[in-house]
Nucleic acid binder design. Sequence first.
DNA 1: CTCGCGCCTTGACCGTGATCAAATCGACGT
DNA 2: ACGTCGATTTGATCACGGTCAAGGCGCGAG
Lengths: 244, 244
Amino acid sequence: MSRIRLVATMTNAPGVALDELAQRATRIATRRHQRIALAGAPDETLFLIRKGLFLSRAAIPDSHRNILGILYPGDIAHALAIPALDRTEITAASDSGEIWRLRGSDVQELQEMDASLARMITDRLAEKAARLALHNAVIGSLTGDERVAALMMELALRTGRHTPAGIEFEMPMSRTDIADHLALNADTVSRIVSRMRSKGLISVSARNSLSCRSLDDLARACPLADALARTYGGARLDSSQTAP
Amino acid sequence: MSRIRLVATMTNAPGVALDELAQRATRIATRRHQRIALAGAPDETLFLIRKGLFLSRAAIPDSHRNILGILYPGDIAHALAIPALDRTEITAASDSGEIWRLRGSDVQELQEMDASLARMITDRLAEKAARLALHNAVIGSLTGDERVAALMMELALRTGRHTPAGIEFEMPMSRTDIADHLALNADTVSRIVSRMRSKGLISVSARNSLSCRSLDDLARACPLADALARTYGGARLDSSQTAP
DNA sequence: CTCGCGCCTTGACCGTGATCAAATCGACGT
DNA sequence: ACGTCGATTTGATCACGGTCAAGGCGCGAG
C-alpha cells in the first residue's frame, strides 16, 4: 500500500534573488475576483505570484471555457508563456492575495547581474511546462471522477493544513471555473462532488473549503496521484508501510 | 473573410548563441523510431531539437496514452520541463533528424558568459508553456473533428511546403500516436481522417504525407485556428481581402 | 421579513466518441 | 508470388458526460 505525506511546500523563490526583485517590484494587493489584465502590459512584463490563488483566463472561441490554468504562490506569469488568445487576464480566486509586477527591462538587468535569478526564472518556467503537460494527461486520459480527484489532490498538497478531521484545503473557485479547468461541465462537476461526499471521500468544512480524511483515499481515486504528489507536494507516494 | 499566409518559420535559435552551443554539443543523428531516454541522463542535461519531428513520451498509469507532446526543430527538451512520470523518453517520428545533447554544467557556464543564450532558453521555455496551454484548450474545448483539424494546421504551418495541389505536409505518426496526443481513440481518428478526405478537405499525397488545397478551409474547421496560426506559423489570420 | 439574483443541485434525455470485433491493407522476408 | 504480422479501416453497440429544465439554497437589498 502507498502513503502520501504532506510536507511543507517551498512556494517562494530563493531568498537572494527575491531581495533583488523586491526592490524593483510594484506590489499589488488583491481581493477576490480582482482582475489583472495582461493585454495592457508590455510584452516583457513579468508577474510573480506571492500570496493567494489566481486563475489565468482567456477568451476561447466558440466555447464557454476560459480558464488556462491555476497560479500558485511562487509562480511566474508572463505574456510570452500564455497562448495568443484574446482577453488574457489573471483573476484572484482568494482574498488577500499579492502579486509583484516587474518591468521586463528591470528583470533583464537583474538577470545579467545575478545568474541565480536567471536560473530561478528558467526553473519556474520549466516547472510550469511540466505542470501543463501533466494537466494535459489529466484531462486527456482520466474520467470525470478522476479529474476532480486530481484537482483536489493538487489543492490539498499545495494549500492543505492538517486538522483533527484530516486535511483541510481551499477550493475557492465556482463550479463553472472548476468545470472549465477540468474540461467538464458544471452540472457534471456538481454531480461528481456530491458523489464523493456521499462516499465519504471528502466533506465540506466551510464555504469554499473541503476536508478529506485521508489523502491516500483520494490518491486511490486518481491514477495520476503519484505524479501529482511529486509535482505539487514535494511529497511522494512511497510503498513503505512503516507506520510509526 | 480571413486568410492564412504561410510564412517562413524561424525554427532555429539566434545565430550567436547557437555557435557557442555547437562547440559543446554532442550531435545525435536519428532515424525513425529511435529512442532517446531522458531517464538515464542527469537532471540538468538539455536537449536541443535541430532537425526532424520528435515525440516526447511517458508511461501514464492505467491508460494506453503515452504522448506528452510534439517537439519541432528549435525546441528544447529538459527533464525539469517534463512531468514526474515513469519511462520518459523522446522518440524520432521522422527519418534523418538531429538532436544536440548538452551537459547542464556547460549550459550554465555559457549562460553566464552570454546573456543572449539565457534569453533564448527562457524564450523557448515560455513558448513551450504557451503551446502546452493552447493544447490544453484544444483537447479541452474542441470536438474530435476540430482537434484533428488543429493538429493538421499545426503541422502544415510548421512543416508545410507550397505545391501546385496546395500545401503539402508530413504527418509521420501512427493513428495511435495521433489519438494519444489528441485525447481520442485510434478508431475515431481513422474515421475522422476518412471523413475529411471524402469531404475533400485533405488528400493523401504519400505515405505519412498529406496535402490540403487551402489552409483557410482547414482553419474554418477549427475554432482555435487563429491562435494556432499565431503560435505555430508566424503566420496570422487577417481580415483583409486584398488579393494581389 | 420577503424578494430577487446567482450559484448549486438533481433529474430526464440525448449525442459523441469509446469499445469490441471483423475485414482489409501494407510492408517485408522467404 | 505467397504468407505473416502489424496497422488501419469500418461496422455495431454502449456508456460517459453534455444539454436542458426545474427546483433549492445562500445571501444581500429593500
